[in-house]
Design a protein around this nucleic acid. Structure first.
Lengths: 202, 202
DNA sequence: CCCCTTTGCTTGACAGTGTCAAGCTGATAA
DNA sequence: TTATCAGCTTGACACTGTCAAGCAAAGGGG
């Protein structure tokens, strides 16, 4: 699998002051640029301006580096969801919808990162740091669902599955270009979320 | 990345009669067993009982082999959706729901295959055979949506995004273990699909 | 001041990968 | 019988993740 050699424009010349941060930054860049897991440890090292084995000093394995990147991404997503929810007013469904809107916006803005965040089986061993960050993220959604009435007889678990299903599926389809929309994706997302008002209102 | 060496029990001893079919079969086995793209050309070749470069004679590149496997999987999924739709009676929403149920069942039965099928960006170049098979599959869903009334003012495109979003998101969340369900996943899927009846009935 | 340990990174190696370039083998055609 | 040729193998290349060893500099104790 020969390397195409793009994205090597901004190679660092001298060793960076914070190697760990430089590696995380390089990995994020590579993930967002390359769409899939072709992001190699050696490419990260080159981009960060260190030797090919330097990453081993900070991350025991490739999966650990990726996990660290994903954990940070989860925290960003959690922040965005909380901010949108708190800006959405008092109505429980509006707050759930705001949370979902932020989720979709994040997913569409960072498709490659998003894909990896929500396919944990791909990092063979579950990573503690990442699992915690993911848990905090899920909790925000769970709280928003729990705060709504669910007259359809849905349990909180099923309601959460339903709400999450909606946003997760939409991001996956749109960011992979599987569905052709005739309007701004966020507008369609808004419509789809609004369709759930009846299921989440008293 | 050293190989763990499992799944080598059923190595073929002599060269198979139909090498191409043997390779497709080996690739399918490896994908379903390994959950991610660690399925290597060389591992397929070993499993099929041929040399490491034999695949090149049938598939110009690794992506082409994977594409062929996924195209076949798409055809299987399409078949299952059509069968379930035709067994669901006359009501348009029931037929849509049957289609969705078959979709979810397939996704939960073949999680790794499913993941790859619906993440086409991961195979850098779009493959014709696979795109056609995927198109036929999407068409079945599209027809089912088009046959329903959509009083909410949804266009067919938005309705299709909504219906597909539901099943795609559910499969992604459940098969990755991201959501904890207190019942059989297909039962929850049934509930979630049923919630959409109001949006797809006259 | 010198030595000694530790930290942080580098160099080198190994087995694995995808892909390309040859070479071999057996069947079919002339 | 010989020529051709498809179908597969062997060998090589650059790349990968990971491990082992080594080097350079900083810091501390005598």
């Amino acid at each position: 699998m020969p390397n195409n050699g793009s994205l090597t424009a901004n190679l660092r010349k001298s060793r960076p002051s914070d190697v760990r941060a430089a590696l995380l930054d390089a990995a994020t860049q590579l993930i967002e640029a390359q769409t899939d897991d072709k992001v190699s440890l050696r490419a990260c090292a080159r981009l960060a301006g260190v030797s090919h084995a330097a990453p081993a000093h900070y991350f025991p394995t490739r999966a650990a580096l990726i996990s660290a990147v994903l954990a940070h991404a989860f925290d960003k997503l959690t922040e965005a969801m909380i901010a949108a929810r708190d800006a959405a007013g008092d109505d429980p469904f509006d707050r759930l919808k705001g949370t979902g809107r932020a989720y979709v916006a994040f997913g569409l803005a960072h498709p490659a990162l998003y894909t990896m965040m929500f396919r944990p089986t791909y990092l063979q061993v579950p990573d503690g740091e990442m699992a915690e960050a993911g848990g905090r993220c899920g909790a925000v959604l769970g709280e928003a669902v729990a705060a709504t009435p669910r007259p359809g007889g849905l349990t909180v678990a099923a309601g959460m599955a339903m709400a999450w299903t909606t946003v997760h599926g939409f991001v996956g389809l749109v960011s992979n270009g599987l569905v052709l929309l005739d309007e701004d994706p966020m507008t369609t997302a808004e419509r789809i979320l609004e369709q759930q008002r009846t299921a989440f209102s008293g």
